[in-house]
Amino acid sequence: MRGTTVTDQDRPAGDGEVAGVVPAEEVALVARAVAGEGGALEEVVRRLRDPLYRLALRMVWRPADAEDAAQEILIRVITRLATWRAEARLLTWAYRVGVNYLLNLRRKSPQEERELSLDEFRDGLADGLAATNFAGPEAELLATEVRLSCTQAVLQCLDREERVAFVLGDIFGLSSAEAAWVLGTGPAAYRKRLERVRRRLRAYLDATCGLANPGAFCRCERRVEAAVASGRVNARRPVLAGHPVAPGGRGVAEAAAQLRRLRDAAAVLSAHPDYAAPRARTDAVATLLRSGRFPLLD
């Protein structure tokens, strides 16, 4: 798989400030953090840790791998904080650092290793579909886990450049100008890439997923037994349905309600809770930074 390295030198001509105004409060916060104020640095970590973890999770699929990636991204962001010039919001800039890392990550997800296509994934769903809904203990919880796991797996059937384009635009809601800046391309080129991915995903979900199209064949409730048997879902400890949520963030029920209202491809793939980054890992980042082993760049 071809990686893409995004640097300031890669920025297209005319790709200057991203549309919108960077709040003065954000500029002042970063200035204090760069000057060595511990409380400001911890506030920067607090603001960025959950969104960067969710970016990593959408790109690498498994929470354990996302934890590792998010920790590395957060260290890179903080140690490069002095290079931020307020050309974009702090989080948008942090996404740029994170995307650069994730596109070039050597570790591959299981689907990436197998180079699994959307068609092959659909065939696998059809083969493991039960005739009736799962009615065992925790049926609703396990069907939710199947849904969350399946939509993660669908994204892994895209190549990384396609995946990140969809994640930034249709899941995280960045404008085409912001997403293009993150990716180091022009807005028009980004919109074309995103529309190609949307068409592929709409066609796949319309033919496959009962959540997007009631006439499609697949139902989460009928995939539970096969998912548990294959080890994709842990019946005793659902990973995604039981994942901690960020304070004040959207939970499983709220995400499912959004899905029922919208019932389209973007809703199916984005109806996840607002997952929280593991606090022990991000607290460890703050401890390392305070230790002086990772000084901020001047």
Rank of each mutant, 00 (worst) to 15 (best):
A229S: 05
A229L: 13
A229H: 04
A229E: 13
S230W: 09
S230R: 14
S230Q: 10
G231S: 10
G231T: 02
G231C: 09
G231L: 04
G231D: 08
G231N: 06
R232W: 09
R232L: 15
V233K: 06
V233S: 12
V233W: 00
V233C: 04
N234R: 03
A235C: 13
A235S: 15
A235M: 07
A235Y: 01
R236Y: 05
R236T: 00
R236H: 12
R237M: 09
R237S: 14
P238A: 15
P238Q: 10
P238C: 11
P238T: 11
P238E: 09
P238F: 12
V239F: 00
L240H: 13
L240V: 12
L240D: 05
A241P: 10
A241I: 00
A241H: 04
G242H: 03
G242M: 02
H243Y: 03
H243M: 12
P244F: 11
P244I: 04
P244E: 06
P244K: 02
A246H: 04
A246Y: 00
A246R: 10
P247F: 00
P247T: 03
P247E: 05
P247M: 01
G248H: 04
G249Y: 03
R250M: 14
R250P: 00
G251T: 03
G251S: 06
V252M: 03
V252D: 01
V252Y: 02
A253E: 13
A253K: 11
E254G: 08
E254C: 03
E254T: 02
E254A: 15
E254F: 11
A255L: 02
A255R: 03
A256N: 13
A256S: 14
A256E: 12
A256I: 01
A256H: 12
A257G: 07
Q258K: 12
L259W: 02
L259D: 06
L259P: 09
L259C: 07
R260A: 15
R260M: 14
R260S: 14
R260V: 15
R261H: 06
R261L: 14
R261M: 14
R261C: 11
R261A: 15
R261P: 07
R261Y: 13
L262Q: 12
L262T: 08
L262G: 01
R263P: 10
R263A: 15
R263M: 12
R263W: 12
D264L: 09
D264A: 05
A265V: 07
A265H: 07
A265D: 13
A265Q: 03
A266R: 15
A266L: 05
A267P: 01
A267S: 08
A267Y: 11
V268S: 06
V268D: 08
L269G: 04
L269T: 02
L269Y: 05
S270W: 02
S270E: 09
A271Y: 06
A271P: 12
A271K: 07
A271T: 03
A271N: 05
H272I: 01
H272D: 09
P273L: 06
P273K: 01
D274I: 02
Y275G: 07
Y275K: 05
Y275E: 03
Y275V: 02
A276F: 00
A276Y: 00
A276R: 08
A276E: 08
A276C: 09
A277Y: 08
P278K: 08
P278F: 10
P278R: 03
R279G: 13
R279H: 08
R279C: 09
A280I: 11
A280Q: 09
A280K: 11
R281G: 09
R281A: 15
R281K: 13
T282K: 00
D283L: 07
